[in-house]
């Protein structure tokens, strides 16, 4: 029971950055070790500001890039580059920008059927078409949309098409890389409701990447807060939103707008900038901006500890 569909252990991804002709290439630590388990039918949200490694994580899980080190286990199988092709069917992705993620020269029918053409070459063309049409209705589009081109659709409709395409191979895991942040607020809720509905119906597990905490609050089961390539806190949604323990999580939560004009605003303002991922700081990455930081924080890196509510901090709130 409770076998995770995806689990990651110590997942890392470094890039080499060349600065000059003769200087040694520097190492950019986009993702420096992250662990998580994603249960079937659940949603795990990854939140953090730009540059914290969220999208790199998405690219590793969808097997677009190879991890520098660490293990990734998908549906009980440890992933290595040689069996990427076989595992593609289980993990699919929906991108942030609905205007860039659909091929402008392909019809919706081709966009939807392409995954089947590639992965199920034995399937007859008529069956492919039937399945693509079913999927179109499932995501709330009409049959006459089948033969149109992407430029004839609005952003929300395009995102529905992206979701339909991702579901064509019956994946167990859907990576949602900020799927609604490019959409109008009114369309956002439609897409989120669609995603919830599809999760119930198809038993999908979502890896939901976002920087929008109001969306996460509505959508996720578990939340991981990331800062500079590392997880700083992980907990269930309720716990994290009611009682954040890491100072960064608290600061992040204090910035989400609320629909109550009377509420007292005690927004925590963070000073300074995100440290460069090129410098490998010895201590806690958040220490330079943290109002609770002590010398211990700058000297040593806290580990992610705890049972249900894990936090990487020497002075948890």
């Amino acid at each position: 029971m409770n076998v995770p569909v995806v689990s990651a252990r110590g997942l890392q991804r470094f890039y080499e950055v060349k600065e000059g002709f003769l200087s040694k290439p520097k190492i950019l630590r986009a993702l420096s070790g992250i662990d998580f388990d994603l249960q079937p039918g659940k949603t795990l949200a990854i939140v953090g500001e730009s540059g914290c490694g969220k999208s790199t994580l998405a690219r590793l899980v969808t097997m677009i890039e190879e991890p520098t080190s660490g293990t990734l286990i998908i549906e009980g199988k440890e992933v290595s580059t040689s069996d990427w092709a076989g595992l593609r069917k289980s993990v699919q992705i929906v991108f942030q920008d609905p205007y860039g993620s659909l091929n402008p020269r392909h019809k919706i029918s081709d966009i939807l059927m392409e995954p089947l053409v590639i992965n199920r070459p034995d399937m007859p063309a008529s069956v492919r078409e039937i399945r693509a049409r079913e999927m179109l209705t499932l995501v709330g589009l009409r049959p006459e949309h089948f033969d149109r081109y992407p430029h004839m659709f609005s952003g929300g409709q395009r995102q529905r098409i992206s979701i339909a395409r991702a579901l064509m191979l019956d994946p167990k895991i859907l990576v949602l890389d900020e799927p609604v942040s490019a959409l109008d607020v009114s369309i956002q809720s439609q897409i989120l409701n669609l995603l919830v509905e599809l999760q119930d119906r198809l038993g999908l597990a979502y890896l939901f990447i976002s920087h929008d905490l109001s969306v996460v609050r509505h959508f996720a089961d578990d939340v991981i807060v990331m800062y500079l390539g590392r997880a700083v806190e992980r907990a269930t949604k309720e716990r994290l939103f009611n009682q954040p323990r890491h100072p960064y999580s608290k600061a992040l939560l204090s910035t989400t707008p609320r629909a109550d004009p009377e509420a007292k605003r005690d927004r925590i303002k963070l000073e300074g900038e995100l440290p460069s991922p090129l410098d490998n700081l010895p201590g806690c990455a958040f220490a330079p901006r943290c109002w609770l930081a002590t010398d211990a924080c700058r000297a040593q890196r806290p580990k992610l500890e705890g049972d249900d509510h894990q936090v990487a901090c020497f002075h948890p709130l």
Binding site: R88, Q92, I93, E114, P115, I118, N119
Partner: peptide, 14 residues
């Protein structure tokens, strides 16, 4: 660079 190319790769395009 565009997402639709990545999307084709995720779908397994050679």
């Amino acid at each position: 660079q565009k997402d639709y190319v990545t999307s084709a790769r995720v779908a397994g395009a050679g």
